[in-house]
């Protein structure tokens, strides 16, 4: 077992920052190429006119998920060393809802706004400033919502553990759901395109 490389001490903190930068470059390249740098492209998901971002995102999730599984299966990766956040169900549900509302109003999410700023989208600057303001508000409110923030703690838990179902079966369900989602997305895009061309006459 040799991966994750960093956690097995193959390189130190300083080098990890360089790694972060290089990975970031690829992250930025792919995001921009995926259309994540355009607020209209991102917002188009929510009007079913162009489901590109949805497709990119779920293909990425499925790819990484399958990769993680098989790398640990062949014994290269120690999955228990890979960090993922603990689950606090209620705050995460509420946070997701607020973030979703903010997504369609603001047109970006934090990662995509970085790419949008670097490609010259002026609105993305306002978005990032808003983001900092929102975090500031949260920080100031934090002492009053601490209890809620730490409520419904479930620890570091994944879906197979929660449902007590075979890890592979959950993966297959996710894969099939993604493929179903993509089919529906393609269909919705065609439907909306027809509707628009009809409306234009």
């Amino acid at each position: 077992m040799t991966a994750p490389l960093f956690k097995f001490g193959y390189f130190n903190d300083e080098v990890s920052l360089i790694v972060a930068f290089v990975i970031g470059i690829f992250f930025g390249l792919v995001l921009e190429k995926g259309g994540f740098g355009s607020a209209r492209m991102l917002a188009a998901q929510f009007y079913f006119t162009d489901m590109r971002v949805f497709k990119v995102m779920f293909t990425a999730i499925v790819t990484a998920m399958i990769g993680l599984f098989y790398f640990s299966w062949v014994g290269v990766l120690d999955l228990s060393l890979v960090y993922f956040g603990e689950t606090f169900l209620l705050p995460q549900l509420l946070g997701g809802l607020i973030l979703g509302v903010g997504f369609v109003i603001g047109g970006y999410c934090p990662g995509t706004s970085a790419v949008a700023i670097s490609t010259g989208r002026i609105d993305a600057i306002f978005y990032a400033l808003g983001g900092m303001f929102g975090i500031f508000v949260f920080g100031e409110m934090f002492p009053y919502i601490t209890d809620f923030f730490y409520s419904t703690a479930m620890g570091k838990i994944n879906l197979p553990e929660l449902l007590d179902i075979n890890y592979g079966l959950i993966m297959l369900v996710v894969i099939l759901m993604a493929i179903g989602g993509f089919t529906a997305a393609e269909w919705a895009e065609k439907l909306m395109a027809n509707k628009q061309s009809k409306a234009r006459g």
């Binding site: 946070g95 973030l99 983001g131 900092m132 929102g134």
Partner: peptide, 12 residues
């Protein structure tokens, strides 16, 4: 939108 996103992201 950014503000909501920032707040929501921290909550989640």
């Amino acid at each position: 939108g950014g503000s909501l996103m920032g707040f929501g992201a921290k909550m989640a």
